[in-house]
Computed example of a mutant assay.
Amino acid sequence: MPKDPARGSVFRIGFAVLDRQIVADDGEHVGKTDDVEFSWNEGEAPAMTALLTDTAALGPRITGRLGRMWRAVLARLRPFDHDEPVRIPIGDVEAFSPTTRLSTPAPEGSRAAEKWLGDNVVGRIPGARR
């Protein structure tokens, strides 16, 4: 990957952004970055516009039979009506390394699938509430 002359260094998204823990400004763990969103205009370089997190963002990254199974299970267990991932605008990111730190509170809907599974599956296991 070539260096960006304006920045003077290489920014590797796969290393610095994807699968890194996201932490809100209050210290709450939001989740991990499952995908990134880009936008671009003709004649300009692509620009990263948002981080995508949650189980809905991870599904499309998994290919083949496992990916189809993941999306089918997600469609049945999704704790809310839409199957869009949680979108965090890039302007809300304070820093990327070693974890992605936000300058804002956790976005609404983050970790919803985890909370739903904790309440409705794990919470029903005898002794799980101790």
Rank of each mutant, 00 (worst) to 15 (best):
I13T: 15
T55F: 15
I13C: 13
D119L: 13
V93K: 07
V17P: 02
P2S: 13
S9C: 10
V122H: 08
A112H: 06
D4N: 14
G127Y: 05
A112E: 03
R76D: 10
I22D: 03
D25C: 14
T55G: 14
R111A: 10
V23F: 08
G14R: 08
S97M: 13
D25Y: 07
Q21R: 11
A106Y: 02
G8K: 04
V30S: 11
I13P: 03
A75Q: 06
D54N: 06
L74C: 00
V122M: 12
I90N: 05
A24Y: 04
R12F: 06
K32F: 14
A95S: 15
G64I: 05
K3S: 11
V30P: 01
F38M: 15
M48Q: 06
D83C: 10
S103A: 15
R111M: 11
V10D: 11
S97T: 14
F15G: 00
A57R: 02
P85H: 02
E94G: 13
D25A: 15
R61I: 06
A113G: 05
P5M: 06
V93Q: 09
P85C: 08
A112Y: 04
L102W: 04
L117D: 02
R65L: 12
F38P: 01
R12Y: 06
V30L: 11
L66I: 07
G109N: 02
R61Y: 02
P126V: 01
G64W: 03
W116A: 13
V122P: 02
D4I: 08
W116H: 08
P2Q: 08
P85V: 00
H29W: 06
V86C: 06
A128M: 01
G109A: 03
D83M: 14
N120V: 12
V30Y: 06
K115Q: 12
I13M: 12
R20T: 09
G127C: 10
E94C: 09
D25F: 07
S39G: 14
A57F: 00
D26K: 09
P5T: 04
A16E: 12
G14A: 11
A47I: 06
V121G: 11
F96V: 11
E28Y: 01
P60Y: 01
T49G: 10
G14P: 03
S9N: 08
N41Q: 14
G14T: 04
V23I: 15
V17W: 03
P98C: 09
L74A: 12
G67W: 04
L117F: 15
Q21C: 10
S97W: 10
D26I: 13
G123E: 04
D54G: 09
M48R: 03
W70T: 00
E84L: 14
G118Q: 10
D34E: 00
A128C: 04
